[in-house]
Structure formats: structure tokens, C-alpha cells
Design a protein around this nucleic acid. Structure first.
Length: 453
RNA sequence: GUGGCCAUAGCUCAGUUGGUUAGAGCACGAGGUUGUGAUCCUCGGGGUCGCGGGUUCGAGUCCCGUUGGCCACCCCA
């Protein structure tokens, strides 16, 4: 006898796990649809070239790639959606509405060593706006992400959206005399600043011409954009028409002219979208990926140094890189693994029973035979009638006629109601939530009652 | 890729300095009693101790390897 284990970094989904997975993916879907995105999908595996074109051959060791026995083409399980998205868009760009708003949610694969918040097979949600260069599209992407987080019960105190602007940062650096060739090194240093003591960071960034005071602004990272409070003092809402301004204390230390040219229009859109108070502008958010060209953002658990819950930004050159027409684009991705960790952390993952209810896995009605001798034989025909009406109907697999045990079965199944068969044409209906029981009554009346929403 | 900790029933665990047919609780299944989510009673299925070697008269226990898990580093599209 050989026994098998699931491959490293994969998960098995037993019924409750599958229900939890649906809970998350359904939340993703409804947030996307609320924000006017349309669902698309592609193959789970693609030609290997699709990934090496953008990221170079080095990426191959991070992929699950394979060649069919006897075949000549190399394939890879998809590690991300963006190349597929660009391919789909490029193939039909001429006939697509502008802007194009697409989302997808499905499995992705990376050949990394598993650890907290990271598996080899995971689910990822992607939203992208193609063909809209405006800060409004940037804001809409962030707003969709925030909408999902809020729908799961997270608040602006649980999670923070950290936003930066690549192009503005680059222009500003250049205006300070930091040569473009060294920007990459500086971004890397900014990305790694959390992993070194402040003195070391200040020392290293001094090489790029920054004073210790300026290093501190980077170290703290956050620059708040303040907006005037609503005119109506009883409302906590921010006046959507008031112009936002950048925190002046940072302004005194670092000349933020270039930064503010890019940020204020975005901030204005974030105000309009009603999410400015979820957002911090953070000079140290750069994202690892080289292809971002403008706004970049990450969502982090407040006070936690966990992995990013979500991340994305603007990538205006990418579609062209995949052979499509030059198209401005902005998007983000969110994985299910870190999201689930954060929900558990914040005690926002619903109970097992609530998950089953919310994904619609619980029975509408449970059929129980009463003591009448013919009742047992009538259970299956009645169940069939209820199912034909579109109801989720079950009966016990137990052979006992003990009503208490059968009702326990009904209760364990989380059914809303039980029908107790009293005879050929008589039944009682018990509401398993309230405990109220009505009947006996004619069978048709019981069926009608059980079918009520 | 590097390192640390871990692996006994579906779950949580116990298992003496190596010593008979490896245990408990919960869960699960069958039946009985009482017409209502119970109570009580009886019975039952389940583990080649992750896997493979080694040491030993004898290994769940000691050693080596391997697979998987957790955690950190690297990386993170």
C-alpha cells in the first residue's frame, strides 16, 4: 500500500474549507460587480514564453513549468494574471469598450517555499482598468479594493492603503540631482528600510544626498493628505468638493512639489470616491515590480508588518510589451491567503455555521417521518416533490424512527425547517430557528408553508 | 535556496530509563427506551505510530535519510 500526501504548499478543500473559499471569492466577485467590472478568465497554464518575455529567464525557477512528454513546447502554470490579461486585451483591443474594466478570480501557482501567508497554489483576485490614463481610474481601482475590505467588516483602523507615485518620485529625485541610473538602488533601499535600524538607513540614504531629517520622513513614510471637514458639523463625512492639501510639516523638510503635482489630483479623486481616510501617502512604497509607471499602492494590516494584503498600480507600458496597442492601464491583485489571515486576526471570519449559511449550503427543509407506520415510505417521495419545487431538501440517512434523533440530524444540518410526516396526507412543519411547530395539516399546505422564504 | 521546531485515530492529546494484542476524551456509526433538536443504556468501526533504512533479543520511543507541516531569512509578479 502506498499512501499519498498533497504536494507541498497546496491545500485540500473539505466541505467547510470549500465553503470558506466560496465566501471569499463571492465577496471578491460582488465587490467587482458593484464597481462595474466584468469577469474574464484565461487558461490555468500558458506558454512559458508569455512569462519570460516580461520578467526574463530568471523567473523560470519560480514557475511550475513543464513540457508534454514527446512535445516541443514549454508551458507554465500561471503565476499571475497580468500577462494573460494583456494577451486577451491585445487580441480584441479594437472592439472593446474604452475604458475596459475586467476582473478575474482563480488559482495561481508559484514554486516558492511555503511560509506564513504564502503557498504554492493560492487564489488571487485581479481588477484592471485598461485605456484610462486619468487619476480617476487610479482612484477607482483603489476604491474597489477598499470596497471589498469594507464588505468583509474591515475598517480604516484595521487596514491602511499606502499610496505612492513612481513617476512623480522619479521626477522629484532627478530634480534633486539623483541620477536616474541610481533610482533602482534607492527604491530597493526604501523597500528594505523596515529591515534595518534607523541609523543604518539614514547613513545609507545619505549617499543619495538626503539629510538625516529627510531620512526621518522616509522612515516614517506616511504623509497625510488633509482635507477640510464637512461644513455640516454633525456629519463625519468629508466635503467632497473641498480641495485636499498635503501635510505641511513634511513639506518643510522635503520639497514635495513634484510629488504633490501627481498626488493632489489623485487625492481629489479619492475624496470623491469617499475613501480618502483609508489612505496614507507613503514615499517608501515602491513595489518590487519594475513595470509600474505611475501610482503604486499596497494594503497593509494596521500595526502589523505582515505581507501586503493587496498591491497594484499603474502600468502604462505593459500592454504594448505584450504586443498590444499602447494602452494606459491600472490594476491590483489580492491573494486569499493573507486576506484570510487578516480576517482571522481581526476576528472577522464568520463562524463555520455562518459561512455555510452565507454561501447557501444549508437546507431549506428537512423531512422527518413521524410515528405513523406508512410515514417512512413517504419520506423520499415528499423530498422529491420539494426538490422539484427548487428547494434544498434533505432527509436523514439514519434508520432510527426516534424523532428526537432525527430532529437532531435536521438541526445539525442547519436546516431552516423540518416537515414531520404524520400520515399519507398530513404533516407538521417545525421552524428550526424559532422552535415553533404548526400542524398537523394537509400535505399540500405543509409543502406551501415549508417553501415560504 | 538557507536555517530552527514538529509528525501517534477524523479532532485534541497520553504513551514510563526501549519491553506483551498502542490508549483516553470528543466526533462518527448501529440498536433500544421516551412523540420533538434531548436524556439514559448497549454495541461498533476506525491507527502497519508520515514514509524508508539502521542499531537492538525487542523501536511509537534511539540514530540516519526522506516527505510533509509550522516559523524566520532570501524572494515576492
Amino acid at each position: 500500500m502506498t499512501s499519498f500526501q498533497a504536494p507541498k504548499g497546496t491545500r485540500d478543500f473539505y466541505p467547510l474549507d470549500a465553503a470558506k473559499r466560496r465566501f471569499i471569492t463571492e465577496a471578491w466577485r460582488s465587490a467587482s460587480i458593484r464597481h462595474a467590472f466584468e469577469e474574464v478568465d484565461g487558461p490555468i497554464f500558458e506558454h512559458l514564453d508569455l512569462y519570460t518575455v516580461k520578467s526574463g529567464e530568471g523567473i523560470v525557477s519560480e514557475l511550475f513549468s513543464f513540457r508534454r512528454d514527446g512535445g516541443e513546447k514549454d508551458y507554465a502554470l500561471r503565476p499571475e494574471f497580468t500577462p494573460t490579461l494583456a494577451r486577451l486585451f491585445a487580441a480584441k483591443a479594437g472592439s472593446l469598450p474604452k475604458p475596459t474594466r475586467w476582473f478575474t478570480a482563480g488559482p495561481f501557482f508559484r514554486a516558492e517555499k511555503p511560509q506564513r501567508g504564502r503557498l504554492r497554489e493560492f487564489l488571487q483576485w485581479n481588477c484592471d482598468v485598461l485605456g484610462d490614463p486619468s487619476p480617476a481610474a487610479d482612484a477607482e481601482i483603489i476604491a474597489t479594493c477598499v470596497s471589498l475590505l469594507a464588505s468583509l467588516g474591515l475598517t480604516k483602523n484595521d487596514v491602511r492603503v499606502k499610496v505612492n507615485h513612481r513617476a512623480a518620485l522619479a521626477a522629484w529625485l532627478e530634480s534633486r540631482g539623483v541620477p536616474a541610473a541610481t533610482h533602482g538602488d534607492l527604491l530597493k533601499l526604501l523597500d528594505a528600510k523596515g529591515k534595518m535600524p534607523p541609523e543604518e538607513f539614514a547613513h545609507k540614504i545619505a549617499a543619495f544626498g538626503f539629510s538625516p531629517q529627510q531620512a526621518e520622513v522616509f522612515q516614517k513614510g506616511v504623509i497625510r493628505v488633509t482635507v477640510p471637514a464637512s461644513v455640516d458639523p454633525t456629519s463625519a463625512a468629508i466635503d467632497p468638493l473641498a480641495p485636499p492639501t498635503i501635510d505641511s510639516s513634511a513639506h518643510d523638510v522635503i520639497d514635495l512639489t513634484y510629488f504633490s503635482d501627481a498626488v493632489l489630483p489623485l487625492a481629489k479623486e479619492l475624496v470623491a470616491a469617499g475613501i480618502i481616510d483609508w489612505v496614507d501617502f507613503d514615499l517608501s512604497i515602491v513595489r518590487g515590480l519594475a513595470y509600474y509607471t505611475g501610482m503604486v499602492f499596497e494594503v497593509h494590516e494596521a500595526g502589523g508588518n505582515d505581507r501586503a494584503i493587496a498591491g497594484g498600480g499603474r502600468y502604462d507600458n505593459l500592454v504594448e510589451m505584450f504586443g498590444g496597442p499602447s494602452t494606459p492601464a491600472v490594476g491590483f491583485g489580492m491573494g486569499d491567503v493573507v486576506l484570510a489571515l487578516v480576517l482571522q486576526d481581526r476576528k472577522l471570519m464568520p463562524s463555520d455555521q455562518d459561512v455555510l449559511r452565507r454561501v447557501g449550503a444549508t437546507p431549506d427543509v428537512f423531512v422527518v417521518p413521524g410515528p405513523a407506520p406508512e410515514a417512512e415510505a413517504l419520506v423520499k417521495p415528499l423530498t422529491a416533490r420539494l426538490r422539484a419545487l427548487g428547494l434544498h431538501a434533505r432527509y436523514s440517512s439514519k434508520t432510527t424512527r426516534n424523532i428526537g434523533k432525527l430532529l437532531k440530524d435536521a438541526s445539525d444540518s442547519l436546516a431552516r425547517r423540518a416537515i414531520i410526516l404524520e400520515g399519507r396526507d398530513a404533516a407538521s412543519v417545525k421552524d428550526l430557528v424559532s422552535g415553533q411547530q404548526i400542524g398537523p395539516m394537509p400535505l399540500d399546505a405543509a409543502i406551501a408553508l415549508a417553501a415560504q422564504r
